[in-house]
Simulated scan of single mutants.
Amino acid sequence: MSTSAAGSYAPTPYTVPTRSPERASYDRELVHAILDEGYLCHLGFVREGRPVVLPTLYARVGERLYLHGSTGSRPLNAAREDPGLPVCVTVTHVDALVLARSAFHHSVNYRSVIVHGTATPVTDPEEKARVLDALVDHVIPGRSADSRRANRKELAATAVLALELSEVSAKLRTGDPGDEPEDLSLPHWSGLLPVATVHGAPVPAGDLEPGIPAPDYLTGYTRG
């Protein structure tokens, strides 16, 4: 694990943004909080000379990120090659639309994390089973104990990639629009339109046995 000080990741040429570097943060607690609030990431890699970006589920366990996939997927096949698959993983939360008086200064308030590194497959069956439980519980805490665990055939069909949290940075934008002083008197509304992800009430499957209630961990389910 690469750190520049207690509680911080060390900046590298891959993690220092060229635009708005003042918005970057390497604070470990902040990085973990942003990762833990989400469960969908975008996995970027190069395949046969062309860039590929795939959405997938993930979970953080300590200083390691685990990515869910299929045994027939392109990233897993590439990750089997020594020393692994160079990747870039991104997680983003949009908190508000920023509406300025000028079109140029419209923006978005957001929190994001970018992770660079080399992903490798998790091959040990016991470790893979634990990681899959962690993935399920990261999305819905408590769900792994309330469902059948993957059997041997399902484990063989499921891929998990591991990525160390070493080259990591967070980037954030907060606050009001940054209008030019000469635009402040213009007759255009300016401010923020908050954005939030809302999880609705549980909807039972059509073939659910009568009398099985929705579990308590789904009541009022929220993240962050």
Rank of each mutant, 00 (worst) to 15 (best):
P215C: 03
D27T: 08
T158H: 10
R101P: 03
S2G: 10
G220W: 01
S25E: 10
S4P: 11
W189G: 13
L218D: 01
A157H: 08
V98D: 05
N109I: 01
P210S: 09
D133T: 08
T222D: 07
P215K: 03
T90R: 04
T219Y: 13
V122Q: 00
V61A: 10
D207L: 09
P121M: 04
A5T: 03
P121K: 07
S112Q: 01
E180D: 15
L30V: 11
L161Q: 06
T56S: 09
H93W: 04
R148C: 08
A6G: 14
T3C: 00
T118S: 08
V113L: 00
Y14W: 11
Y58P: 08
V61W: 05
T12C: 03
V131K: 01
G178P: 08
E126F: 11
D27K: 04
A205Q: 12
R130M: 08
V160N: 00
E22V: 06
F45Q: 04
E209F: 13
T12E: 01
P51H: 05
L35E: 06
E37S: 15
N77E: 15
P181N: 01
L132N: 07
S166Y: 00
E48F: 00
S190Y: 03
F104G: 02
V91G: 09
E48K: 12
L85V: 13
G69E: 03
D179F: 08
P11L: 08
D176N: 05
C41V: 11
T92H: 12
D82K: 15
P125L: 05
T90H: 02
A103F: 04
A205E: 14
V89F: 12
L35N: 07
S166R: 15
G69R: 03
V89I: 14
P13Q: 09
D124V: 07
R143K: 15
V160C: 05
D216I: 03
S25K: 12
T18C: 06
A103Q: 04
D216L: 13
H42F: 10
H138R: 02
R19D: 07
T174I: 02
L85T: 14
P187D: 09
E154Q: 14
Y58E: 13
V122A: 03
V122D: 05
P181C: 02
T12R: 06
D207F: 12
I140Q: 12
A134L: 11
P86C: 08
A5Q: 08
G178D: 15
E63A: 15
R19N: 11
A78V: 13
S73P: 00
D133H: 09
G38W: 07
Y39V: 10
A201K: 14
Y39P: 02
Y26A: 00
T118M: 04
A6Y: 13
L43P: 09
L54C: 03
P210H: 06
W189N: 12
I114A: 02
D179V: 06
D179A: 02
E180W: 14
Y14Q: 15
H138L: 01
F45T: 05
S20A: 10
E81G: 12
T219P: 00
V53K: 10
L192C: 06
V195M: 00
H199N: 11
